[in-house]
Nucleic acid binder design. Structure first.
Lengths: 115, 115
DNA sequence: TCCATACCTGCGCAGGTGTGCAGCTATGCA
DNA sequence: TGCATAGCTGCACACCTGCGCAGGTATGGA
């Protein structure tokens, strides 16, 4: 199998066959991108705190999240907007209170690994 | 239990008791930081590609990683330096070839979730 | 000794990201 | 109707990060 793209087929390899294995292991670039984007959402301490709180204690209001994390309201709001745009959390409006929860299965799997 | 720090004890809560649950759920800030740093290492498509290649095909040389990912050598080198400084990968020198592998258990767990 | 190779490092730039501030919208109650 | 509260948004700023380029170090062979 020659999985090496033509534009770099002339470069010297150390272990030629393992290069092909590596390319197969990496797989679809779009898929890799999807996962790196997911990891990026968890890469901020504030966002990770929000997600851990939501994941382990269930639906929470924005104000309560702000108090629990020590962030101020706009910061929480913007973080949740980002997470909502990515489909990681969803908010349910009850009167003037919005309670958020984690809805992405892949992210829940990652949060479960945070011991 | 009153887990809310004094500096924000006067703020209004929506669900008072759940705030305490949330604070307990978040846990030690240092621990959260450790994990967000870990996620940050996986948040770059190039670094994630390198780690997936190393994780699924075993030890690989820098040049081969460069060919497999389409990066050029300095970029691979710098990425590996970052990962090595974080204790995620380790390199073994054989002559003038350095083969890297993933040595961090937590990261291996995360990589295993990348289906 | 000389050279090619494998890898590493420093530097500078472009691009993205988190945050605070001020102000806006919308809901509920008196 | 008037007001306080919950939440959202826009903007400007400082900060960080990834990358390419050029050049440096170390190993192995002619």
């Amino acid at each position: 199998m020659h999985l090496v793209p033509a534009d770099r087929a002339d470069r010297r390899t150390i272990d030629g066959h393992r290069v092909c294995d590596a390319i197969a292991a990496i797989g679809d670039p779009g898929h890799v991108r999807t996962w790196s984007d997911r990891f990026a959402l968890l890469a901020d301490p504030n966002r990770l705190s929000l997600l851990l709180a939501l994941h382990r204690t269930g639906p929470l209001a924005v104000s309560d999240l702000a108090i629990a994390t020590g962030m101020n309201d706009p910061a929480v709001s913007q973080a949740l907007r980002l997470l909502r745009a990515a489909g990681v959390v969803a908010g349910e409006k009850e009167g003037r209170v919005v309670r958020y929860r984690v809805v992405d299965e892949a992210v829940r799997g990652l949060l479960a690994q945070v011991s």
